[in-house]
Measured scan of single mutants.
Amino acid sequence: MSIQHFRVALIPFFAAFCLPVFAHPETLVKVKDAEDQLGARVGYIELDLNSGKILESFRPEERFPMMSTFKVLLCGAVLSRVDAGQEQLGRRIHYSQNDLVEYSPVTEKHLTDGMTVRELCSAAITMSDNTAANLLLTTIGGPKELTAFLHNMGDHVTRLDRWEPELNEAIPNDERDTTMPAAMATTLRKLLTGELLTLASRQQLIDWMEADKVAGPLLRSALPAGWFIADKSGAGERGSRGIIAALGPDGKPSRIVVIYTTGSQATMDERNRQIAEIGASLIKHW
Rank of each mutant, 00 (worst) to 15 (best):
K30M: 13
K30T: 15
K32M: 12
A34S: 08
D36M: 09
G39L: 12
G39H: 11
R41I: 14
R41T: 13
R41G: 07
V42E: 04
V42Y: 06
G43D: 00
E46G: 12
E46H: 11
L47K: 07
L49H: 02
S51M: 02
G52L: 07
L55C: 10
F58K: 00
P60I: 12
E61T: 11
P65T: 07
M67G: 14
T69R: 00
F70R: 04
K71Q: 00
V72Q: 02
L74P: 10
G76W: 10
V78L: 12
V78M: 11
V78W: 07
L79P: 10
S80L: 05
R81A: 04
R81N: 09
D83W: 06
D83R: 05
G85A: 13
G85K: 14
Q88S: 08
G90T: 02
G90Y: 04
R92M: 07
S96C: 00
Q97P: 14
N98K: 14
N98D: 00
V101H: 05
V101C: 05
P105C: 12
V106K: 11
E108R: 01
E108W: 00
K109Q: 02
G114M: 03
G114E: 14
M115S: 10
M115L: 13
T116W: 05
E119N: 06
A124Y: 06
N130S: 06
A133H: 09
L135G: 05
L136F: 14
L136A: 12
L137F: 11
T138F: 09
I140G: 11
G142R: 10
P143V: 06
A148N: 12
F149K: 12
L150M: 15
L150V: 15
H151C: 07
N152D: 04
G154N: 07
H156G: 06
V157C: 08
W163I: 09
P165M: 06
E169A: 08
E169G: 10
E169H: 06
A170D: 05
A170E: 09
I171S: 03
P172W: 06
N173R: 08
D174E: 05
E175G: 12
E175S: 11
R176Q: 10
T179E: 02
T179C: 12
P181A: 06
P181L: 03
P181G: 05
P181F: 01
M184G: 07
A185H: 02
A185Y: 08
T187V: 13
R189M: 15
K190T: 15
L191S: 09
L191Y: 11
T193S: 08
L197Q: 08
L197G: 07
L199V: 07
Q203C: 13
I206T: 10
I206Q: 13
W208G: 03
A211Y: 04
K213Y: 14
K213C: 03
V214R: 14
V214T: 14
A215W: 01
A215L: 04
P217Q: 11
P217D: 13
L218H: 13
L219G: 07
A222F: 14
L223I: 02
L223E: 00
W227L: 06
K232R: 13
K232P: 02
S233C: 12
G234I: 01
A235Q: 05
A235S: 02
A235F: 03
R238F: 01
S240W: 03
I243K: 01
A245C: 13
A246Y: 04
L247Q: 13
L247V: 10
G248H: 07
G248N: 06
G248R: 04
G251N: 02
G251S: 10
S254I: 13
R255C: 13
I256D: 01
I256P: 01
Y260L: 07
T261Y: 13
T261C: 07
Q265I: 11
R271L: 09
R273S: 10
Q274N: 11
A276K: 11
I278R: 11
I278D: 10
I278T: 13
I278V: 14
G279D: 08
S281M: 01
H285C: 01
W286T: 02
W286F: 04
